[in-house]
Design a protein around this nucleic acid. Structure first.
Lengths: 238, 238
DNA sequence: ATTACTACAAGACGAGTAA
DNA sequence: TTTACTCGTCTTGTAGTAA
């Protein structure tokens, strides 16, 4: 489950930041509870308890402890919290930023997106949560490096969550959507991040109530601009 | 006094973010404690106490309450907290960012900086805290808009604090310094932000143990590049 | 409506300590 | 050395309510 920054104490939040600064999102790092306690000027017991809660209760870090020390790694949900915080902070410090524009170039995927979104359980949720029935296909966009930072900012915002399900013994995960606009197109469009917390990735899938390839006369390599509005009534506070 | 993000509870931090998103750093906003309580899914009483602590105890917001509601404005120290958080978060999410480069163009000030830094009490602190005796003058730099964002990032880091004092019935405030490097110059250099929390401002004063104008052969309008190293042993945890 | 007090409940913290 | 338990204390949140 996606978690919100409100649900964390200041110390837990700061601990996630501390771990990320030590590159604990890339690899497991070695640390002791006393080191953490020293850094936060608190007791070793509190540091230990904090670590237990972050891993067992909240699932934000992977963690194993031995008699000689602890080993910690941020997991995707933990990184997600930090990106949420970044998003809220950017909105706080730059309230004039109302729109995030990113560019992408169209490319053909393996048709996986098409297969996934056409599962009826997903389809029903799309209609219910986004208010439109997607065309049975997705448009893949590759985002240039210079725009990935802004894409991560979008990922840090609270998504429309299309819940996962199980079908035929197979697990289908939650799908995270962000409603976007394509300039001079009235159609409803949403960007899909198929797997949770793929920060730094440079691909995006678009769904729409129309066939975007036809409507915009796109082919592989075509450039496309999408806009994300920051101050739309968000599901953040629900 | 400058405050650290560790000293705030999660709710206080989130409340500052919330206020800033409502543009409470520019102008006083009208809000009720029940609205805050709803937003954070807590009680009206807790919201009230939180507000009291943020204003009376911590001095991070200006606040007046009436029988009909409250009026809140972020003060510079509150904004400062958010920039500190942004700095730590950027270091967390982009740990490869080790150096911040900003450009500036030299201009002549009114000689105020020279007057200020040559107060003996400041001078003594410079030697003690920075480890060098500044040349009796400052170099003014004007930062182009595109680099102001990075300048704010530097301002969000924990500064070397040169304490203020009183002399002849006049108050001299704390001076905040950030040690920087000028490429291909071995001299010690520090950037000064004369007044606290001037986020968004586009000027900077440099002090150094040498006369920078002479050493670099600078005149008004000359371009200068300065580097700020992120992972220098920081005073952050002191 | 509001804000914010008091009183009590729930939760967090740290000292001591076992493993 | 570690981690992490128990337990007493202190802090923080909420309900009721006054202004």
């Amino acid at each position: 489950m996606l978690m919100k920054i409100f649900d964390l104490s200041s110390r837990e939040l700061n601990l996630l930041i501390y771990f990320a600064q030590l590159r604990a999102n890339e690899k497991e790092i070695s640390i002791t509870t006393s080191q953490i306690a020293d850094f936060f000027k608190t007791s070793q017991q509190t540091a230990s308890r904090c670590l237990i809660r972050l891993s067992k209760e909240l699932g934000l870090v992977s963690w194993r402890s031995t008699r000689k020390g602890s080993f910690v790694q941020l997991n995707p949900l933990g990184l997600d919290i930090l990106h949420q915080l970044r998003f809220e902070l950017e909105r706080a410090l730059y309230p004039d930023l109302n729109i995030i524009t990113i560019h992408g170039s169209v490319f053909s995927g393996l048709g996986e997106g098409k297969y996934y979104i056409s599962r009826s359980s997903y389809m029903d949720s799309f209609v219910k949560k986004l208010g439109f029935k997607p065309f049975h296909g997705t448009l893949n966009l590759r985002i240039p490096p210079v725009d990935v930072d802004r894409l991560d900012l979008i990922r840090g915002s609270w998504p429309v969550i299309i819940p996962g399900f199980e079908e035929g013994g197979r697990q289908y995960g939650d799908v995270l959507c962000y409603e976007v606009k394509i300039p001079s197109l009235t159609a409803r469009v949403a960007a899909i991040v198929p797997r949770r917390s793929h920060y730094g990735s440079n691909v995006l899938e678009l769904i729409s109530d129309v066939n975007l390839r036809e409507a915009l006369n796109l082919e592989d390599g075509s450039e496309l601009t999408i806009n994300y509005l920051l101050n739309q009534t968000s599901e953040y506070d629900k």
